[in-house]
């Protein structure tokens, strides 16, 4: 019997698989495909203090082994999420992680505070790495001091464990990881998308209306693995790994690199059953490579 369960700050996971923020909406759509109680956790689409419409379309484009997106944090606002989205998900026996975003430090604090008003959310994912909004987002995630500052401010007001979502669009991700750990982060989630662009030949213009978008999908997996591998050796807080995961083998690769759990994003678009299928496959893959539990595999790919 392979043990998939593990405990992380605020989270008691039956397995390490969770859909990534922004790739699963608020769960309604995917609840038509399978029982969401099967998931280790669900990471919600980003919440801002007030409703955001997001960017003009086109917002997505195919790339080699991946895709670009520039949705622009479209969401109904934190109170609507708490009142109308979270109650739907709380019927499922799984953990709910709320992703919080903002244009200013004050907005992050306001959104984080709002989630104190519900007991149905188990942790926060602090989104300081969205590449697709003009203000805020990534600017907090590319400077160690600002990243630490916003982490500290959110930790101060929130009753929930905080996982800081790191941007790969930096020169030295270890310094950011260390800075947010020192500022009180309970965990990390990494990586967000990598800023990219695609130019449409017939129109000679960027294909995405926002011009730039975040690259995701299998194309970025080696980058994510490298970053998890480096960061996990330099911090003592758990990492939720993500970036191009498509199957249970990919999950094991992230565990070996030092992630404790993983999030699956883009793959949901291609196969709405992917998280459920990975959960079914993971025990076989762990067994095949000589592990009897998820816990046992964490960090085992790190060479002395």
């Amino acid at each position: 019997m392979i043990n998939l369960s593990l405990k992380l700050p605020g989270l008691s996971l039956k397995n390490p698989i969770m859909p990534a923020s922004g790739c699963f909406g608020f769960g309604h759509e995917y609840s038509d495909f399978y029982n969401l109680s099967k998931l280790g956790a669900i990471i919600l689409k980003a919440a801002t203090s007030r409703e955001r419409f997001g960017n003009p379309t086109p917002r997505v484009a195919e790339t080699a082994s991946g895709m670009l997106n520039a949705i622009g944090l479209q969401n109904p606002g934190v109170m609507n999420i708490i009142n109308h989205e979270v109650p739907f998900l709380s019927q499922f026996d799984t953990n709910i992680i709320a992703n919080i975003a903002g244009s200013t430090l004050e907005e992050y604090v306001e959104v984080a505070k709002s989630f104190n008003e519900t007991d149905q959310v188990h942790a926060l994912e602090l989104n300081i790495s969205c590449p697709n909004v003009k203000e805020g987002g990534i600017q907090f995630g590319t400077d160690p001091n600002m990243a630490a500052h916003v982490t500290e401010a959110v930790k101060k007001v929130s009753q929930l464990p905080v996982y800081v979502k790191l941007s790969p669009n930096v020169t030295d991700i270890i310094s950011i990881a260390k800075a947010v750990e020192a500022a009180g982060a309970d965990g990390l989630s990494m990586i967000n998308t990598i800023t990219g662009m695609q130019i449409h030949l017939p129109s000679r213009k960027p294909l995405i209306a926002n011009k730039t978008g975040g690259l995701s999908g299998p194309a970025i997996k080696p980058i994510a693995i490298r970053m998890v591998y480096e960061v996990s050796q330099n911090v003592n807080i758990p990492i939720i790994g993500m970036g191009g995961i498509q199957n249970a083998e990919d999950v094991l690769e992230f565990l070996l690199a030092g992630a404790s759990a993983v999030a699956v994003g883009t793959a949901n678009f291609q196969n709405p059953f992917v998280c459920s299928e990975i959960i079914d496959e993971l025990p076989k893959v762990l067994e095949k490579y000589g592990f009897s539990s998820v816990q046992e595999a964490i960090g085992k790919g790190i060479m002395a």
């Binding site: 699963f24 759509e29 379309t57 917002r59 997505v60 997106n69 678009f269």
Partner: peptide, 12 residues
């Protein structure tokens, strides 16, 4: 329109 998930989850 260019679509992502096709089921209403990704807001593309």
């Amino acid at each position: 329109e260019r679509m992502g998930c096709g089921v209403g989850a990704c807001f593309a």
